[in-house]
Design a protein around this nucleic acid. Structure first.
Lengths: 115, 115
DNA sequence: TAATCATATAACTATATACTTATATAAAGC
DNA sequence: GCTTTATATAAGTATATAGTTATATGATTA
């Protein structure tokens, strides 16, 4: 066990980001599967800009990375973040997101993207 | 490794609490040493009610417990919290608080309490 | 090039949050 | 019982935050 230590400022900032139910769920989902915004929309009862704004904050903090493929932008956890170990230690305690992923794959907005 | 899973609601609530620099520092200090409010006042540039209000939130969430001894109320981490494992996994990444504890013991407001 | 789809940004709003000061409670010592 | 010390609570305020709707950007396809 490597116990990467993180400045208290940075740690509290990332904990605040994860201290929102929507963002924490997004992170837990992204741990299991990369997603685009339209896929996450299947999970949350919320507008598209709301999801985009949450992802923006996570991206600004370096917690997620984006990968554009055509019209779609796929989000995933950023393993190069200096906070990655902390994030993993936290997400380990969060319930499995298979049910939410099922919701995504049920309506498969991703089908439209042809991947 | 036991990986206690915590409901997403509870997890996000506790992460939000730890997502404040002052509260996160308090938790990191309490991990190393029980403290009363007047001791924590040595560390933070903040009013006494501000510290009390932070401790109140941590107590309401079950993260800390209090132990009154005479006029003083000593706060410490609550090992009986269902969130204890998560908390420990987080605090593991927070820098050592020995310097802040030195500040406390330098002015030793605790001396007055005769312990 | 126009229409469509995915996403981002802007502007706004309601609520939450972290402080402040003033005051209350509670224990200890004179 | 009065004063002091430690802590809590109340009330108020400024700022942060998470959502909304409207609009812009950017890629794809007809």
């Amino acid at each position: 066990m490597q116990k990467t230590t993180v400045e208290i400022e940075k740690a509290s900032h990332v904990l605040k980001l994860l201290g929102d139910k929507t963002r924490l769920t997004i992170m837990a989902i992204l741990k299991q599967r990369e997603c685009c915004v339209c896929e996450l929309l299947e999970v949350f009862d919320m507008s598209q800009p709301a999801i985009s704004q949450h992802l923006r904050k996570l991206k600004d903090a370096g917690l997620v990375k984006e990968d554009r493929r055509g019209q779609w932008i796929y989000y995933s956890l950023n393993p190069r973040s200096e906070l990655y170990d902390l994030i993993q230690d936290i997400l380990q305690h969060i319930p499995d997101q298979t049910e939410n992923i099922r919701k995504i794959e049920e309506n498969t907005p991703a089908l439209r993207c042809g991947c």
